[in-house]
Design a protein around this nucleic acid. Structure first.
Lengths: 159, 159
DNA sequence: CATGAATATTTCATTTTATGAAGTAATTTG
DNA sequence: CAAATTACTTCATAAAATGAAATATTCATG
């Protein structure tokens, strides 16, 4: 770490790397890994579908509104990557699940992103492991709780 | 780390955390830290303006096209947060620099994001420092080189 | 030093994408 | 069983990204 960079707080330094990494990955993934008919949101939906999920659950996970999920699901369905199935527990609801082709696409996406991460991050295998451990901790905090903020209006309910 | 999560490669685990963190931060920042008239791109421009930068340099840093930077600069200028100044080295070029108000806004943004990071990451002070060190390494690899990819058509030139 | 090619930015038209309000169907409440 | 709520979709609208062309300046070259 250079002196230049020491003037930033640890939090800021953490964010600088995360943001740079995300934007770089996002741009390259969009250009190389995603088919032209597939936008960023569709990619994110694919990644969340490691298990069947309800449309509403996806909207909540992706921090977006139901109409966006509907649109993304439509496009993915047209590409044959996902299928809408009725939710046995609630006949209003639909679960989105990957087709065989969808799994293949998702696998490719994950593999491509992993390879890209190695290239772009420049970390050694050992550093990647360290980074992964901390990163996973963050992941669990975010997905596990969701209600970190003090303001109750921000804790997941949008309507 | 749970057994559940062990089935993912270190690279994937690294990315899961980074993506979750980014999306969460992005959403909350947009809702709370940015003024309504200010979009995500404007926020990113502000963060890059720790020093005056040319419009083109910003486009390259932000991985977007010149028209987007022009539009963002227009909006920020209308809010009184930035100023366009002629580049002494090249009369075609303009450098964008923060006004006093812009610095204040940027400071707020950085402080707000840092505080938010503490909350959502759930890491201890010590873990934050570790994470920051690795994260900064990634940051330097990305910003320092830019030409990591093998394919020459992807190494920064868009036209 | 004049001319053509390249570069920096902007403008404009177009397409994508996100957002909000209303609509339909099913569930829950009382 | 009626009213209120919830899940999803549709549609209209607003916001954002993208590409092509225009202007001004610089650079390369003969």
């Amino acid at each position: 770490m250079t002196d230049e960079e020491n003037r930033f707080s640890p939090e800021t330094r953490a964010l600088m790397g995360v943001f740079a990494l995300y934007w770089k990955m996002d741009a390259v993934i969009d250009q190389t890994l995603l088919t032209p008919q597939m936008g960023r949101l569709e990619g994110r939906v694919l990644l969340q579908l490691d298990q069947p999920r309800r449309m509403g659950a996806l909207a909540q996970l992706l921090l977006t509104g139901p109409p966006s999920v509907t649109a993304a699901a439509d496009r993915l369905q047209n590409m044959g990557l996902v299928r809408r199935a009725p939710d046995p527990d609630d006949r209003r609801a639909l679960v989105l699940q990957l087709t065989e082709q969808g799994w293949e696409m998702r696998r490719q996406l994950e593999a491509g992103a992993s390879a890209l991460f190695r290239q772009v991050s420049g970390l050694s295998d050992d550093e990647i492991k360290q980074f992964a451990a901390l990163s996973m901790k963050i992941h669990d905090t975010i997905t596990g709780t969701g209600e970190i903020l003090k303001d109750p209006s921000q804790t997941g309910d949008k309507e």
